[in-house]
């Protein structure tokens, strides 16, 4: 797979980790078949995965933590009559669920449009397959697997 892609210029476009100025183009690169390194696209995707998990953990701690300390309570009759509300919701729902929910929608803007990076592999193959080449390639890959 790697060998097939050597001439496509795909590797040359990726500059996720290496500084853009020092990244060589495909024609400048001189590959050694046996030497390899982690694909920067994989490393970047893994970093993004960790960010997703951190976001999840933050939202869970906020929601569950706030609700636990502010929402789990037994009200007296007077407290129930004079319950404090924000925007028509009990305050613990407002701060513990509504606000983090809206915040995450804003975080989604940052995450999607400013943090997630493009993937050259995905974007360079974006054009839909217009011939029977998919089946041909599959056959070739199965034949190769059988040979191996």
């Amino acid at each position: 797979m790697c060998g097939n892609r050597r001439g496509s210029g795909r590797w040359s476009l990726d500059a996720v980790i290496a500084p853009k100025t020092s990244h060589p183009t495909a024609h400048q690169m001189n590959f050694d078949d046996n030497a390899w390194e982690y694909d920067p696209e994989f490393l970047r995707a893994r970093a993004e995965m960790w960010s997703v998990l951190w976001l999840f953990l933050t939202s869970m701690i906020w929601t569950i933590g706030w609700s636990y300390f502010a929402g789990y309570q037994k009200l007296t009759e007077d407290e129930a009559k004079n319950i404090s509300l924000l925007w028509g919701m009990p305050t613990w729902v407002f701060w513990g669920i509504f606000v983090p929910w809206i915040t995450i929608d804003f975080v989604a803007i940052w995450f999607c449009f400013f943090y997630l990076q493009d993937s050259q592999t995905i974007d360079s193959e974006a054009a839909p397959v217009t011939s029977h080449s998919g089946t041909e390639r599959l056959k070739a890959s199965l034949a190769q697997q059988a040979k191996d």
Partner: peptide, 11 residues
């Protein structure tokens, strides 16, 4: 591993 996680290393 090389196919799914790696790329050829330039000299």
């Amino acid at each position: 591993v090389r196919k799914y996680f790696g790329r050829p290393k330039p000299h």
